[in-house]
Design a protein around this nucleic acid. Structure first.
Ligand SMILES: [Zn+2]
Ligand SMILES: [Zn+2]
Ligand SMILES: [Zn+2]
Ligand SMILES: [Zn+2]
Lengths: 161, 161
DNA sequence: GCTGGAAGTGTTATGAAATAACATTACATC
DNA sequence: GATGTAATGTTATTTCATAACACTTCCAGC
């Protein structure tokens, strides 16, 4: 789980400037049409996630929350994260105790991640094979409402070295 | 995640008596042939997991550790859990912060769980579709060493009510 | 059998992650 | 502008997990 090598974490680059503003506006629009409110703290946490280069710990969000360097109170951030997750704007990565902005857009969806245990790079992927599992569960009468897949391993860069 | 209904958690029944003893002996044998040691604390934690009816929290293991009702120290149990997971005798369920004995036997393997958010029943299943995902990751140069799938939803019993 | 190193354990203390509980404020609807 | 709901602010606490270091057990090689 920790970085055990000297590689650049080739994680998805965080959004900046107008790209960031645009992504936030998009989120705002989707909230509007869904009857949801992208309030200030929610927007701020999403901004931090979108701007980050990889998964972010809750307490790092808490520390970075205030524009003036002032920390937030934990519930402020945890509530925002809960909302963002519910709306499909963010995912929690259970095996890291960390959070990422969704990079696949669209609605709430099964989340799948490839997590390099060497450099820490984390990539959200289409959950290939998820339909098979959901169908298999359905045959037993189990209805899946939420599915998470977390694959740990080594990325191409770290394997090469 | 909490029990929100009055159903019996139709979880896998915990092992007792000779079945439990046999399972522990089997684990011991497998450790022997693998050059591993199923020491007393490891064996005790595995015993607690095998005897439980579902996922168990680490601090519940800590509290139940002493046969005389005396609690263990956290590192004792966490180390044992780490070992049991490494050997494939137990799994950590990330989305519950809880641990279960592996019910599929055999070696270390991808773990998949169906978790009923209503009654709490948790079932380990064969990770259908996992091969597809691993193959897909492999095409990108990512080698999966460890895969976890956690599906939340409603079990047949809870859906029926 | 002694011995040296590795693996495992005991113990104390601390750190990290998340939530409970309750007061207060914003917001839409009537 | 009254009313109810959703969201936020704030304090405190709970839950989960690990760091650090001393001590013991085990086994291989002498
Ligand atoms: Zn996503
Ligand atoms: Zn890597
Ligand atoms: Zn298993
Ligand atoms: Zn159920």
């Amino acid at each position: 789980m920790d970085h055990r090598c000297e590689h650049d974490a080739a994680a998805s680059v965080g959004l900046k400037g107008s790209a960031l503003a645009q992504a936030l506006d998009q989120a705002g629009s989707r909230c509007d049409s869904d009857g949801q409110r992208l309030t200030a703290p929610r927007r701020r946490v999403l901004e931090l996630l979108l701007g980050a280069e990889g998964p972010v710990k809750a307490y790092d969000l808490i520390a970075a929350f205030g524009v003036d360097g002032e920390a937030a109170k934990p519930p402020t951030v945890y509530r925002a994260l809960e909302f963002l997750e519910r709306q499909g704007f963010a995912h929690r990565i259970e095996s890291l105790n960390a959070y990422v902005a969704c990079r696949l857009g669209a609605d709430t969806h099964a989340a799948a991640f490839l997590i390099c245990d060497c450099c820490g790079a984390t990539r959200e992927i289409e959950p290939a094979g998820a339909d098979v599992l959901v169908a298999s569960a359905g045959r037993d009468g189990f209805v899946v409402t939420n599915l998470t897949v977390e694959a740990h391993g080594l990325c191409a860069a770290c394997r090469a070295s």
